[in-house]
Design a protein around this nucleic acid. Structure first.
Lengths: 157, 157
DNA sequence: TATTGTTATACTCTATAACTATA
DNA sequence: TATAGTTATAGAGTATAACAATA
């Protein structure tokens, strides 16, 4: 994309309040936030027609990969708390993309599974994800992609 | 706004629903989202006492680096739209951390500058950011940090 | 007691639309 | 016409607290 000018800010002063942690562009967290925002925006554009968010697609995908998964299992994989997970599940269930069921093993748990409609939606979503990922990966070599994933994994795992 | 579909992909035909784009853990966007979430949560904990968000700290820092910056200039650097920027500025101004002024050059623009209180808060925040960054960087070598920033920059710039 | 699901609540971020003032 | 700021509105994500049912 295009860059904002940046490029400067003369390292500067010794004024009070100077803890000397450097410039904001050297802060890793700042770049993660901006990169996430850029990815989020492109994702939203790509999925506007499907009316699905990142979280919703991830949930559909994970439920498809793990039939009968409980909400807590989903929450762990997504690094979300129960309440946040509930909100997303409610939305997807309301649209008829997945169904809740009773777990035969544990009366406290519920099973989550995709409906036929949900599976069809996931299929379409995966095509859009492939396009989205191509946009994202276009600026990297395969080795760089692998390295980036490895570095990011060290942060969230 | 652009609908996705078509454009691609018959890498694997056959079975319906099989787009064969691999596993979710090979999706770069998935890892960026999880990493961002992990960083966001740690940031929130670190800044709970200061009651500042990532966005708010970034704005304070950028205003300090660019005195008299206009809201639109800030929006460009933060990759936010005007309305989002307004909300953050209003909050910070309400807390007395920055002030709006009239631009002498352009009657449409306003100048943003930190108050003494804002500068003091930024000083404290930078200490907390240093701690937060140390937590984040602990899992990387210096070379890896530099590489990670370089890769992330290619995404958001 | 601990876990799972649930509901209620609240705040932030994000975005769009429409309006005003200025260029 | 275009830009800058503003206001109103809305949806999504995030989180905490409290509760019921089950283990």
């Amino acid at each position: 994309m295009k860059s904002a000018q940046e490029t400067l800010v003369p390292t500067t002063p010794h004024v009070e309040g100077d803890e000397d942690i450097g410039e904001i562009r050297n802060i890793v967290g700042f770049h993660i936030r901006l990169a996430h925002g850029a990815v989020y925006r492109h994702f939203s554009e790509t999925f506007a027609a499907l009316d699905l968010t990142q979280k919703q697609v991830s949930v559909l995908w994970l439920v498809d990969d793990h039939p009968n998964i409980a909400q807590t299992g989903l929450a762990q994989r997504m690094r979300m708390d129960r309440a946040t997970t509930m909100a997303i599940i409610n939305r997807l269930e309301g649209r008829g993309l997945l169904v809740r069921g009773r777990s035969p093993d544990d009366g406290r748990k519920q099973t989550l599974n995709l409906t036929d409609s949900g599976r069809a939606m996931l299929g379409t979503a995966k095509v859009a994800i492939a396009e989205h990922e191509n946009w994202l990966k276009a600026r990297f070599t395969d080795a760089e992609v692998a390295h980036l994933i490895e570095l990011l994994t060290r942060i969230h795992e």
